[in-house]
């Protein structure tokens, strides 16, 4: 049965704004809105009023500190770019940057692959490589997997030119009651810098400053975090 998109569903717009229509009704309104500016403007007025109220009714809840970084990281470098954006000069300039001493060969190969394999191959690169390749204005230092690291554990410290440093991690989910905790180690003194109970690809924005010569490490700790590391590092790297 075809949908009559010419009928203006004015009576249903308030309920649509609320999300209170049944699926079929919602589909009809959505189909109509695609082509009707008049109803779209009408809906926008209902939505603006509703979201004024919703902003006051919203829970007073702080988003996770690293949510912004995760949202941005997920999308850096993911949009198909023109060939010239990624071609020779830019890639050569990137590769000519001083490479941090701690950057292991494996990550260097990743970055080279990411810049040489433009287009389809680039889009198919895994999310971890894309996240790091997309760091356009900062320094990336790989964290080396230590002897107790889970298989395929990967991590890198990102020191942006502006904003807090963060680590990009690819780790399995921690066991129940445990979390991954990041540390900034100055000399022999570790400072707790952030906890995450995530698995897969995720980030931890470091709450402690990272200076030259510091070491950043990740350990497995109780879910609430620890004052001092209680286990050997999974990943570690020096700046």
């Amino acid at each position: 049965m075809s949908i009559d998109r010419t009928r203006h569903p004015l009576e249903d717009l308030p309920a649509y704004a609320l999300g209170a229509l049944e699926e079929a009704e919602r589909a009809f309104v959505e189909a109509h809105l695609e082509t009707c500016d008049e109803c779209a403007r009408e809906l926008a007025q209902f939505e603006e009023a509703l979201y004024e109220a919703a902003a006051v009714g919203a829970a007073r809840a702080d988003p996770p500190r690293d949510l912004r970084a995760r949202i941005v990281l997920r999308h850096r470098g993911t949009r198909a770019r023109r060939e010239s954006d990624w071609g020779g000069a830019r890639a050569r300039a990137w590769l000519a940057r001083p490479v941090p001493l701690a950057l292991p060969l494996a990550l260097a190969v990743f970055l080279v692959v990411s810049f040489v394999a433009v287009g389809t191959a680039r889009r198919e690169a895994d999310a971890y490589a894309r996240a790091l390749a997309g760091v356009a204005d900062g320094r990336v230092v790989a964290l080396a997997a230590q002897k107790d690291a889970p298989p395929d554990a990967r991590g890198a410290l990102v020191i942006p030119r502006s904003g807090d440093p963060y680590v990009v991690l690819e780790l399995s989910s921690p066991p129940t009651g445990k979390a991954w905790e990041a540390w900034v180690i100055k000399g022999q003194h570790p400072t707790a810098a952030g906890v995450s109970g995530s698995g897969g690809l995720f980030t931890i924005v470091l709450s402690a400053p990272v200076g030259a010569g510091d070491v950043v490490a990740v350990t497995l700790e109780p879910a609430a975090g620890s004052r001092a590391p209680t286990s050997d590092p999974i990943l570690a790297g020096g700046t």
Partner: peptide, 15 residues
């Protein structure tokens, strides 16, 4: 996208 989050992320998350 990060700038959009800075402006409206808190209200979106609270909602």
């Amino acid at each position: 996208l990060g700038d959009l989050y800075d402006r409206y992320g808190r209200v979106a998350f609270g909602m």
